[in-house]
């Protein structure tokens, strides 16, 4: 019996946004009289952080502190239409709609401030701390709160904005497959270090090392959440998960979390990540959205590392100990490949 070390890698890209477009998202932004903003959406937070990412995009666009923005989603009576949270579309589509809405609201806010300061609105800037001042003359300023109060109670203006983002539906050529699927791609390369036991077929993942390019990381903490959790899911898909262990035989599916296997807290591996940011030209502040793509490179990298460790190719997921053992037996034992680095 021996445990064989192996290293494998894979590189991928991933389309951001619903393929072929035709999937609008809307946003509404409005201010209370004291300059606190609400963003109304019908976007869905599945845990990926839709509320917070929309909040940061709105705060940045409005030029106000993050605490002054609250995202209210999703109530169909108050939130405007949105297709939903799937197909890596949330950050890209909703984010862009929020920018449009927040820009309109900001325009009214600056007009109100300009009227109070008796200057041209084009000359005004925000400091992100709750103040509006004349560009190059910080002393000539008014707070967002005062401008909002003036708009509401003196000027009779509504500080609000509407936004929609739509990439029109693209057709697919039946003969050639010519199409405009998406406008932005995220990228990744991931290396897996693992060991394979040639007696039990057990695979222990020891380390993940990765480079992910996601456009601008709108919130680094939430990017880390996605990449760590997503890579865990990739490892799970590679080695554990299946509702049909002998597909296409439809039987023997798990009925609970004891029968449907996933790596538990004792089965995880450290993940060393580098984040690259090449902003997407049409993404909100260049953001792409890492949520879906982060699991993908792990599956092939695990398979390639197993080959590197013991010389067997398992082309059918998940790569269970049973499959490894059968392959090793057919091969006449482990055949470790050249070590890498």
């Amino acid at each position: 019996m021996a445990r064989h070390q192996g290293r494998g890698m894979a590189s991928i890209n991933y389309p951001i946004g619903m393929n072929l477009g035709g999937d609008p998202s809307q946003a509404l932004v409005h201010a209370n009289p004291d300059g606190k903003f609400t963003v109304a959406l019908s976007a869905i937070d599945l845990g990926q952080g839709m509320k917070q990412v929309s909040r940061q995009i709105a705060a940045e666009t409005l030029g106000v502190p993050i605490e002054d923005v609250y995202v209210d989603t999703a109530d169909s009576d108050t939130g405007p239409h949105d297709m939903g949270s799937f197909a890596s579309r949330g950050t890209h589509r909703v984010g862009n709609a929020v920018i449009v809405a927040a820009k309109e609201a900001r325009g009214v806010l600056l007009e109100a401030a300009a009227e109070e300061l008796e200057v041209n609105a084009d000359d005004l800037v925000t400091d992100g701390k709750g103040n509006i001042h004349v560009r190059g003359a910080a002393s000539k300023s008014i707070t967002v709160k005062a401008a909002s109060q003036a708009a509401q109670f003196k000027q009779g203006k509504t500080i609000s904005g509407r936004g929609i983002f739509l990439i029109p539906l693209s057709n697919v050529n039946p003969e050639t497959g010519e199409m405009s699927p998406v406008t932005a791609y995220a990228h990744a390369c991931l290396v897996v270090d693992l060991e394979v036991c040639d007696e039990t077929g057990d695979v222990k993942v020891n380390k993940l090392t990765s480079a992910y390019e996601l456009g601008r990381a709108l919130n680094p903490k939430m990017v880390e959440q996605q990449l760590v959790g997503g890579a865990w899911m990739g490892m799970s898909h590679a080695l554990y998960e299946t509702p049909e262990p002998y597909y296409p035989n439809p039987e023997n599916g798990g009925r609970d979390y004891n029968e449907y296997l996933m790596p538990g807290p004792g089965d995880i591996a450290p993940h060393d990540i580098a984040v690259l940011e090449r902003p997407a030209p049409d993404g909100p502040f260049g953001g792409k959205g890492p949520g879906e793509m982060c699991a993908n490179p792990v599956l092939p990298a695990v398979a390639n590392a197993i080959f590197n460790a013991v010389g067997v190719r398992i082309d059918t997921l998940p790569i269970t100990p049973e499959k490894i053992l059968r392959a090793l037996r057919a091969q006449g034992g482990a055949r470790p490949q050249a070590r890498r680095a």
């Binding site: 760590v228 959790g229 865990w232 996933m262 807290p265």
Partner: peptide, 22 residues
Amino acid sequence: RVEVVEAIAGNICRCTGYEPII
């Protein structure tokens, strides 16, 4: 760390990969 892992071994999380929880 091992004791923490054992304490939450009966709790499924599908999002985080457990590392931040530990």
